[in-house]
Design a protein around this nucleic acid. Structure first.
Lengths: 145, 145
DNA sequence: CCATAATGTAACAATAAAAGTTACATGAAA
DNA sequence: TTTCATGTAACTTTTATTGTTACATTATGG
């Protein structure tokens, strides 16, 4: 598996939960769907649980479910709940900070990336889980203009 | 060193070249500044060379220099020359594509990321190497609005 | 024209990040 | 109170990136 499939796994799991409303799906069941490990599922959904996006219950007949309507779950919430970065941050060597050029480049890049990240977050806020689940089969994905 | 410092290294090297116009800097000299290895410098600048951003000459007194004025070098050109991604792409397991939900999530995310990447590329086009080099000491970095 | 000094590149090693796995504690339901 | 789920820590495996070594290639200048 390639790098950082966390977000893909999260969305995949959420769509599965959306597709079976009222039903609680276990980590093991989801892991089978996502072709991964139950612990990986728990780790990722655990972050979404802390953000109030999903809820988990233990014991027999336990499992995961959406804790809010899919219309009220935005991509931005999911990203932020996972502590994911939209943009690749290029990091300099820590020992390098004495160089004025390094500091300048870092600062300039970070300012740009902060702005860009805010811009993208605003866009992501417009996309709801229900959009993904219902519109996925068509081409009508919300555009960025 | 952390993940993907390629871009940081590239910018750092370019600013160094800009700071000493007319002078050819060797991979070894740049590597010392960037606290990395000469071969790493050659690999990265080699990509910029193919894009016509820098030029290299061999032999004694050889080295690297900008092949265009810094005013005509944009961040976008640098990104594209390096084949870098602005956005983190979340990839699904290849064996997973039989699942309709995976395909849908992938397609939706890719459409979003394609749009977002185009948007950011347009913004990056406005930032010139000379902006970074000269404005770095101030806060006046071109804003994204 | 030959010694020198640079790039160009392939092949390999080391490192770091992500994912996968095992193990077990905790808690709820029947 | 047994069962079956989550919660989480610790460890291993895998993969991507970076660093390193080695050497061919090429240009310079005495």
């Amino acid at each position: 598996m390639k790098r950082s499939s966390r977000l893909s796994i999260a969305l995949h799991a959420l769509v599965h939960l959306y597709a079976q409303p009222g039903k609680q799906l276990t980590s093991a069941a989801l892991a089978t769907c996502l072709m991964t490990n139950p612990v990986v599922v728990r780790r990722i959904l655990g972050e979404l649980r802390q953000a109030g996006i999903v809820a988990a219950s233990k014991g027999p007949s336990g499992g995961w479910m959406l804790s809010r309507p899919a219309e009220e779950i935005t991509l931005r919430q999911i990203y932020e709940a996972m502590g994911e970065r939209l943009l690749i941050r290029t990091e300099s060597d820590p020992g390098d900070v004495t160089c004025a050029i390094v500091r300048s480049v870092d600062r300039v890049m970070n300012e740009f990336l902060d702005d860009a990240e805010a811009l993208l977050a605003a866009r992501l806020q417009r996309v709801r889980l229900s959009d993904i689940a219902t519109n996925a089969a068509q081409a009508g994905f919300p555009r960025l203009d």
